[in-house]
Nucleic acid binder design. Structure first.
Lengths: 170, 170
DNA sequence: AAAAACCTTGCACAGTCTGCAAGTTTTGCA
DNA sequence: TGCAAAACTTGCAGACTGTGCAAGGTTTTT
C-alpha cells in the first residue's frame, strides 16, 4: 500500500458512503479532492485585524498565523491523514496547491491594502503561508511538539532569515 | 479545449512520437510528467558559490537567482507552454510541486551549511524559490517584461518584505 | 394533486495506466 | 563473423477513473 488512496477504489468509497459511484462523482470532482477536502481559510476577522493593525507588522502577522494554526490544531487527526495522502499522491498535492494559491492571493490582497506595494505584499503572503506549511511539516516530523510550538520555531527562522536578508553584512 | 493536454490522448502523443502507447508509458510515468518535463536545477557551481560566498547573503542569493533565471530564459517558449499546462491541470501542478520541493530541500542544505540554522535556512530557501516562481508569474502576466526584469521586481519586493518583517516599527 | 425542480442511479463509453508474455533489436564477446 | 545475453518494444487483457445521458424517484411549489 503505497498510498492508501491508490488501493481504495471509488466504488469502495461510494459503497462505504452509501451512495452509488455515479453519485459520488456528483459530489466530488475526483477521488483526491474528496479525500483531502477543503483546507480551512484564514478567518475574515483575523484578516481584517491584519489589514488595519497598528502593531509592528511582524507581530500582527504572527497573531494571524497563530490563530490559524490553532484552527488547524483542532483537527490533528485529519491533518495527519491528509499529510500522509499528500506525501505520496501527486494529484492530491496539485489540488491542495490550488487551494493554497488562492489563499495566498487572498492574503496578498490583505497585505496590499496595508502596505500598498503589490510585490512586497506577495512576498509577505508567501512567507506567511510558507510558515504555516513549514510548521505542519515540522510537527509531522518531530515527535512531541505541538503545532503552535512548531510555528514558533518556524517563525523564529523566518525572522532570522529576514534579518539576514535585510542586513548588508552577515 | 480547457487544457490542451486533456484533449490530447496518450495514444495521439505516442503515435506522434513514433512509438506505441505502451512504450510511451515505459519512458514516462504519466502524461503530465511527460508534458512538463524536469525543471532545470540550480547549477552546482552556483550553489557552491552561495555556500562559500563572502558577500552579503542577499547579494549572493540574488546572484544565484539571476543565473538560474537566465537558464530559464533560454527556453521561454517551453516555459510559456508549461505555464499554460500548469494553470489548468492539477496533476501537473502536483508533479511540478514535487520537483520544486526537492530543489528547495537541496537549497536548504546549501543555506544550512552557510548559516548553520536549519529553520532559518528553510525560510531562505522558501524565499529564494518563491522569488523564481514569482518572477515567472510576473513575466507571464505582464507584457513587455523580461524574466530578469521580473526577477528584479520580485526581488525588490522580497527585500522590502524582509525589512518590514525585521523592523519593530513600520 | 399536478407541475416543476432536483437528486440519484445505471449504463455505455472514452481514457489512463499496469502486468505479462511475446517478439525484436542491440550489445558484447568468443 | 556469429551467437547468446541483455535490453527494448509492443500487443493484449484488464482494472480503474471520470463523464454524458436518460430513466426513475423525491421534494417543493403552487
Amino acid at each position: 500500500m503505497q498510498n492508501g488512496l491508490e488501493s481504495l477504489t471509488t466504488d469502495e468509497i461510494a459503497a462505504a458512503s452509501g451512495v452509488s459511484t455515479r453519485t459520488f462523482f456528483n459530489y466530488y470532482p475526483n477521488k483526491e479532492a474528496a479525500a483531502i477536502g477543503h483546507p480551512p481559510e484564514f478567518s475574515e476577522s483575523d484578516k481584517e485585524a491584519l489589514r488595519t493593525g497598528t502593531a509592528p507588522l511582524a507581530a500582527d502577522i504572527k497573531r494571524l498565523l497563530g490563530r490559524h494554526i490553532e484552527t488547524l490544531a483542532k483537527d490533528e487527526a485529519i491533518l495527519r491523514m491528509v499529510g500522509k495522502i499528500l506525501r505520496c499522491n501527486e494529484k492530491a498535492r496539485g489540488i491542495l496547491d490550488g487551494f493554497l494559491s488562492a489563499q495566498r492571493e487572498d492574503l496578498t490582497e490583505v497585505f496590499c491594502s496595508r502596505i500598498g506595494n503589490r510585490q512586497t505584499a506577495a512576498a509577505l503572503a508567501h512567507s506567511a503561508t510558507n510558515a504555516i506549511g513549514g510548521a505542519i511539516f515540522l510537527w509531522e516530523h518531530e515527535d512531541g511538539i505541538t503545532l503552535s510550538q512548531a510555528l514558533d520555531r518556524v517563525w523564529e527562522g523566518l525572522m532570522d532569515a529576514s534579518r539576514l536578508l535585510s542586513s548588508t553584512g552577515e
